[in-house]
């Protein structure tokens, strides 16, 4: 299934605001992380958090069908 991705901050500058990725349904977020880093070169250099359906997801949780949000921490103040 094709999933839509939203990138934020410096990740948006690297990969664009939106992207897509082909994934098997129901995989764990830990596996999603591996697949994202395989497709989006350079992503692994950044700390980032994944969210879906309005909530941050831990590595042990399963992917649903919603848009995947990929956001790094910001440091400016």
């Amino acid at each position: 299934m094709e999933y839509r991705l939203n990138f934020y901050g410096p990740l948006e500058e690297l990969f664009g605001a939106h992207g897509t990725i082909q994934l098997q349904e129901g995989i764990l977020f830990s596996e999603l992380r591996n697949q994202l880093e395989g497709v989006f070169k350079g992503l692994d250099a950044y700390p980032y958090t994944l969210a879906q359906d309005g909530a941050m997801k831990s590595d042990e949780e399963e992917l649903s069908t919603g848009v995947i949000e990929v956001f790094p921490p910001f440091s400016g103040g």
Binding site: A45, Y46, T49, G76
Partner: peptide
Amino acid sequence: LFKEPPTDAVIPN
């Protein structure tokens, strides 16, 4: 929220 702190300043200020 952000479990792992950055090890290098990849995110500029």
